[in-house]
Amino acid sequence: MILFLNQLINGLHVGSIYALIALGYTMVYGIIKLINFAHGDILMIGAYTIVVTISFMGWPIAVAIIVSILACVLFGVVIERFAYKPLRSSPKISSLITAIGVSMLLQNGAQLIFSPNPKPFPILLNAPPLNLGPLQISFTTILTFAVAIISMISLQGFVSTFKMGKAMRAVSEDMDAAQLMGINANHTITATFAIGCGLAGVGALLYCMAYPTVSPTLGSLPGIKAFIAAVLGGIGIMPGAMLGGFILGIAESLTKGYISSQLSDAVVYGILIIVLLFKPAGLLGKSVSEKV
């Protein structure tokens, strides 16, 4: 039982990180229907920014965190402007390939600048684990979980209350109609990328606190997992991304703990496949059949 609870907590920890990254994925997908393959690499940018600012320049932690989130936002906006915007009216698959190109560029660029060798991520906090009877929960786990939930709630609030949030929803429903209503679609898309990549910045922080090694390919694994989480929950739907992230994290953790770690990837993909076969638009997605 204790073992099970421990594995569950492990799963929640990983799941929160996936969920946070998946949120950004889902927002971008929702608005321009693009699988942004470079999203994971934005994570890597955030991680390196923290390493550079803290380990090399010795800035205070709080400043470094803010700078790293801003760096992610900047990269996201610049990438959108120069790589994706020119392709907005092209077939989706062209944008997809461009996104793959951007991802390769970021990884190889980072390799050129920082060398391919992994760098240690600085220790940001060293709080003792929380002891609940025989259960031991590390502080990072609690922090990660809390940050993920807060981000999710505030994002949902933002989207449903603020003008820009409503504009995002409108543009993702129907870009042309939204423009006719006087919404500046370009600004809205930029804002979506900014928020999505900012979340990736937060994700980078939490990810590296859990796995404190930074390398140029750091982003590809959480990127693909978050993408799966987003699809699992219903891509384009924010609570779906969250749900997908947690399911994925817990499924991975329990498979590794009880079945076989060799099979954890197979189980993850298996769950995805089964869900998609029965609910083609993901767990929370609504199947929209094509109007005839």
Partner: peptide, 14 residues
Amino acid sequence: SAGTDDVDFKSQLT
């Protein structure tokens, strides 16, 4: 055991 690209070993360590 774990996969090649894995970064999370907590389940196994648990």
